[in-house]
């Protein structure tokens, strides 16, 4: 019994590896080509460092990198949490009130048109070099996709399910809680995956505009010191961070909403 479960697990693991194989081969081929180019063309290390050089420097500076990763991760998570709470509350407000929807939605859309390049230094100017401006910028960037995901999720509720609840005498709030909210969960998780990738980038951008510590300011300093290898090392860390958060959303979804059939969305 337990051995068959184990066999099933190991087969699933093998299946996953097989599915990841083409992506891994493609990625390694690119890195390999890059490495070969750096070694054969004699290009200067301060212009284009080889991948091996980046990895080596990342290892040498692991302590500094880690020290600068923590504030970025903190800003990302706090800003994202703020954005989730705001999106959730406001999505309920606009779901219950058509007037509020008409009043607020244009403002939300306008918030998405603000160019981050211009807004980030201003937010730092207003709120200082601490954590707050980073949190605000991450929230600004991720709020709208989350709100749209939730609003569309509510709207995806099957008409018949709502009619059924109404026939049972359910109030508007009960209909929301029993039908509209759970209907929105697949949309919510899709939105989560999109915004979490924006979140890390937004945090780094905010730090770029001014910070005491963080991956963004680390990249800026490395660039100013003519160390592209360290810039790329920090890029590597931020990519890994994003991938980690991205896979965490799958784990949360599997725990919170095991009924969502996610197989269709992942190509077989």
């Amino acid at each position: 019994m337990s051995s068959s479960v184990f066999r099933m697990r190991s087969r699933m693991l093998r299946d996953h590896l097989f599915r990841a194989l083409p992506a891994l081969i493609a990625a390694f081929s690119l890195l390999f080509a890059w490495e070969i180019y750096c070694r054969s063309s004699g290009i200067s290390e301060t212009t284009l460092p080889a991948p091996s050089q980046v990895l080596f420097q990342a290892w040498l500076h692991r302590e500094a990198l880690w020290l600068n990763t923590v504030p970025t991760l903190r800003a990302t998570l706090l800003g994202f949490s703020l954005s989730l709470v705001l999106a959730f509350v406001l999505s309920i407000v606009i779901d219950f009130s058509a007037l509020m929807r008409q009043a607020l939605f244009p403002i939300f859309i306008a918030s998405q048109t603000l160019p981050l390049v211009a807004i980030a230094p201003l937010v730092v100017l207003w709120f200082g070099f601490g954590l707050l401006p980073k949190i605000l910028l991450v929230a600004l960037v991720t709020f709208f996709p989350m709100l749209v995901a939730l609003a569309e999720g509510y709207a995806s509720t099957e008409r018949e399910v709502e009619d059924l609840l109404a026939s049972m005498g359910a109030s508007r709030w009960k209909r929301f809680r029993l039908a509209r909210l759970p209907s929105a969960l697949p949309y919510f998780f899709a939105g989560l995956r999109i915004s979490i990738t924006y979140a890390v980038v937004a945090a780094i951008f905010a730090e770029y505009a001014g910070a005491a510590r963080g991956l963004g300011i680390y990249m800026l300093n490395a660039k100013n010191n003519f160390r592209p290898d360290l810039v790329l090392a920090a890029v590597l860390v931020s990519s890994l961070l994003t991938l980690l958060l991205f896979s965490a959303t799958w784990a949360v979804q599997r725990l919170a909403a095991p009924w969502i059939d996610s197989s269709s969305g992942r190509g077989r």
Binding site: E158, E160, V161, D163, L164, L165, S167, M168, G169, A170, K174, L178, A179, P182, L185, A257, W259
Partner: peptide, 30 residues
């Protein structure tokens, strides 16, 4: 007054509820 129990055209089962919890829906609303 609601002396009627209604069954819609398609089953309208909620995909996020197990069958047991789908069948108790009306009682839960009550």
């Amino acid at each position: 007054e609601r002396p009627f129990a209604f069954m819609p055209q398609r089953d309208a089962l909620m995909p996020w509820r197990r069958i047991l919890d789908n069948t108790t829906l009306g009682l839960e609303v009550q």
